[in-house]
Design a protein around this nucleic acid. Sequence first.
DNA 1: CGTCTACTTGAGTGTGTTCAATGGTAGTGG
DNA 2: CCACTACCATTGAACACACTCAAGTAGACG
Lengths: 239, 239
Amino acid sequence: MIDINKQLRSKSYSVPCELCSVGSICIPMLLKNTLHTVLDRKQSFLKNEVIVKEGDPFEKFYIIHSGAVKTYVTVNGVEQINGFYLPGDIVGFDCIVTKKHNNSIKALSNTLTCELKYNELMELIVNNPDARETIFNLMSQDIINYQKLVLSYSQKNAEEKLAAFVCGLYTQYAKRGHTSLNIKLSMSRTDIANYLGLTIETVSRIFSRMQDLNILAVKGKYISIKSISALFDLAAEKN
Amino acid sequence: MIDINKQLRSKSYSVPCELCSVGSICIPMLLKNTLHTVLDRKQSFLKNEVIVKEGDPFEKFYIIHSGAVKTYVTVNGVEQINGFYLPGDIVGFDCIVTKKHNNSIKALSNTLTCELKYNELMELIVNNPDARETIFNLMSQDIINYQKLVLSYSQKNAEEKLAAFVCGLYTQYAKRGHTSLNIKLSMSRTDIANYLGLTIETVSRIFSRMQDLNILAVKGKYISIKSISALFDLAAEKN
DNA sequence: CGTCTACTTGAGTGTGTTCAATGGTAGTGG
DNA sequence: CCACTACCATTGAACACACTCAAGTAGACG
């Protein structure tokens, strides 16, 4: 039996509404008091809880308020991680066309989500140009992020991939207002390796090497960026 | 001086309107005779012609009618290919949020495009639920394709990547009604290698190996699939 | 027919993997 | 509080796949 109170005690970053992905549609709508039909605020999930199973019918977009989730597919019983989502991120644009979830979603830590009901949202955007523009922009940005990720995968070696991964985490938190050089990894080394297409040993070795080079200090799930410029240099594309 | 007539002589697949990505909005609109404000039909480009330069202002989506294009970014003078687009494909959803082109677009062979004006399209979808749904579905599908590509990159070895690439070409043509096992590669080995994150030598060697295994017959730009099932097996995710 | 470019093939090297052993840490129960 | 267990992470040694460098071949075009 899991002790819910104990699990929820661990603190994690949360994103204020102004810095959330859907902020620009969420806040004005909220003021007009019409969003309650569209948005379920602050649903909570425990660490390791499966929020959505691959194949489930698609009903809502999930916006991460605090905590973190991973999305993954299972092929021949093996998990293949598609992405990590941090506070302010929104999950589910791939589901519009399929009407079902293409990936499972699992909480990496205790997580609060705000959930946008798809059908109600689609009705909303008919008469709301701001909401419509926001959704198009979010989807378009999603596509850009994937394009960059594909390039990242196809052009980078292991060290560059991992550096880019850490830079991405830093940038993601920075965008949402947390500019600390100390980052807590919500995911395991196994998850990172899986996501980056490396082995856990390689991830471990590269973290050690970066520590030797005084770029990072690594202690379990906690990493501290010692030289942000060197880290970004490592992550950059090959010339 | 390029001999236009000669260049245009080479034949290539074209997609009938019913099988085009935007068919469901294009055809009915065309019947109601309102699409002429949105769609420029059959613009032609020569092989190697740059259709769009990275950074150009975003005005139109490009739908490939016949021929093929590649999209790429240039980093430190080096081209990094983002994707290949074949008849029926649509290019440009990443540009909605940036309002400019994030990638250059270049014709790989003589190419005809139908071009959808963005501003006019956005006005159209306000009052046209079918068009709106089509655009959302296309963008959502784009995201799914990128998700699969990312998995493909992170989980596959060189042989599996190339097999998946050829399967992708076959599937793409099949979806548009061309089920031939003979495929003409519009792109060079260099382009394929760049796109898959491999070297040209590795691509060449793997094509040779697949030929030895009687999976493909390779002759320059022409490949003939000898065993579609073996090819799909090779392309499959690792177990 | 010669030139230029694209592709293929070979030999040696290196990065990241595999296999294996060890070291840490968190959770559980005495 | 400490011991025990289980899981996760680190490190080492040997191997393999893909890369680099280099030479040779085929095809396109003037």
